[in-house]
Simulated assay, not measured.
Amino acid sequence: MAYQIACPACGSEALDPRRSQSECSACHQHFVVTAHCPECDEVLERVQACGAVDFFCNHCNNLVSKRAARYDLRPA
């Protein structure tokens, strides 16, 4: 099962952080997903390879896992 984050509208663990836009499978709200570095709070660059998604912080020059990133969710 893919890693999911909580929906700000209904609270269910239903949003996929690997996408820049995601839909909650429980309440069907659409959100723009922005990942931020847990160290410096800069917006992270998505790095995709062979279906896997991680993030890269250009400020810290580090790879950041999807579990370590901090997410900003805004209604689409």
Rank of each mutant, 00 (worst) to 15 (best):
M1Y: 07
M1A: 11
M1P: 10
M1L: 07
M1N: 05
M1F: 09
A2I: 06
A2N: 11
Y3I: 05
Q4K: 15
Q4A: 13
I5Y: 03
I5L: 08
C7H: 03
C7M: 07
P8I: 01
A9C: 13
A9H: 14
C10W: 11
C10N: 12
C10Y: 09
C10A: 08
C10T: 04
G11E: 00
G11M: 04
G11T: 01
S12M: 14
S12W: 13
S12V: 04
E13P: 05
E13T: 13
A14F: 02
A14M: 14
L15I: 10
D16W: 04
P17W: 08
P17H: 04
P17I: 06
P17C: 01
P17Q: 06
R18I: 03
R18Q: 03
R19E: 10
R19H: 07
S20D: 14
S20Y: 12
S20N: 09
S20E: 15
S20Q: 13
Q21H: 00
S22N: 04
S22A: 15
E23N: 01
E23Y: 03
C24Y: 09
C24Q: 09
S25Q: 15
S25K: 12
S25T: 13
A26K: 11
C27G: 02
C27M: 09
C27V: 02
H28M: 11
H28A: 08
H30P: 00
V32P: 00
V33F: 00
V33L: 08
V33Y: 04
T34Q: 14
A35H: 09
A35Q: 05
H36P: 00
H36L: 11
C37I: 08
C37Y: 01
P38S: 06
P38A: 08
E39M: 09
E39V: 07
E39L: 11
E39P: 02
C40K: 10
C40N: 10
E42H: 11
E42A: 15
V43N: 14
L44D: 04
L44W: 03
E45W: 04
E45L: 09
R46N: 05
R46I: 10
V47I: 11
V47T: 04
Q48F: 03
Q48P: 00
Q48T: 09
A49L: 14
A49H: 12
C50A: 12
C50M: 12
C50H: 12
G51T: 01
A52S: 07
A52L: 11
V53C: 08
V53N: 00
V53Y: 03
V53K: 06
D54I: 07
D54K: 05
D54E: 15
F55G: 00
F55D: 05
F56Y: 15
F56S: 06
C57D: 03
C57I: 14
C57K: 03
C57A: 11
N58Q: 13
N58Y: 10
C60H: 02
C60K: 02
N61A: 12
L63T: 06
L63P: 10
V64L: 07
V64A: 01
S65G: 11
S65P: 03
S65F: 06
S65E: 05
S65Q: 04
K66Q: 15
K66N: 15
A68M: 07
A68N: 11
A68F: 04
A68Q: 13
A68V: 01
R70A: 03
Y71W: 09
D72E: 15
D72V: 05
D72A: 08
L73H: 08
R74Q: 14
R74A: 13
R74C: 07
R74T: 15
P75G: 09
P75Y: 09
P75E: 13
A76N: 04
A76R: 08
A76D: 12
